[in-house]
Amino acid sequence: MQVSVTDVHKKYGSRAALDGVSFELGRGITGLLGPNGAGKTTLLRCLATVLAPDRGRLEIFGLDPDRPSERTEIRRRLGYLPQEPGFYRNFTCFDFIDYLAILKEHVDRSDRHNEVRRVLALTGLTDRSTTKIRKLSGGMRRRLALAQSLLGSPGLLVLDEPTAGLDPELRFRFRELITELSADRVVFLSTHQTEDVAAICDRVIVLDSGRARYDGTPSGLAELARGNVWLSNDRPASARIYWRMANGQYRAVGKPPPNVDMLEPTIEDGYVMLVGAAGLGEEPAAA
């Protein structure tokens, strides 16, 4: 395994953001799902080596981020897209990526510029290279942020909500790019989009209140809701969550009443069963 997280704890004041999280990551795409405040960003910041855990052990490519020299080596092999990457608004796309390439030790000017052109092309921003960042749309900025994470072809990509703010076409392009990249590297991404998890992730971890509540395949997550998703003609009183569909029927998730039409569960249903149960203080579904 290329990334190992063992019993990691992190507290902000008295609140535990991470409460004993353990897992391992290998090649491929692993998705991280969880409600707001579950600790996803804290976990990703720890993996990106910008935040030290209070307790527990991280190992990335066999290296220990607590040791400065090993941390530097990890960072050479890391691509990180933070949830809110800051931009120098008056920079052009090219200059911004060029600056970050310098920080990533691309010292030779000519090689560096070629690398900048490469990642701009990968993210479809070649024709925007001389555009100032302040003139870019939110989706374009997200692509620019993704471009910087690809500098130097890193072996580990840590992406915090990479598809947030992207329109459907860009999301598809992102999926295409990430699946291509994941063939020979570790990709760990957090998202609120369960469709992204279903579409590209080999594995999903659900984090809730700082703990990993599920670690398995996306289809396994959907299976958690099997027998708990049904159709109803009336407002379903016993449902944990439900919504009215275009045809006037209700799609409900929760404990079904007798004699209802059961539906094939989705990842979203499994996620609701898992996190909803925890949120309501009930016994969680078996993970």
């Binding site: 960072r75 050479r76 990180y80 933070p82 990457p85 920080l103 030790e105």
Partner: peptide, 12 residues
């Protein structure tokens, strides 16, 4: 520094 988080994650 708006890009401080990215600076921290870089090997510099």
């Amino acid at each position: 520094d708006p890009a401080h988080e990215l600076t921290l994650a870089s090997p510099i």
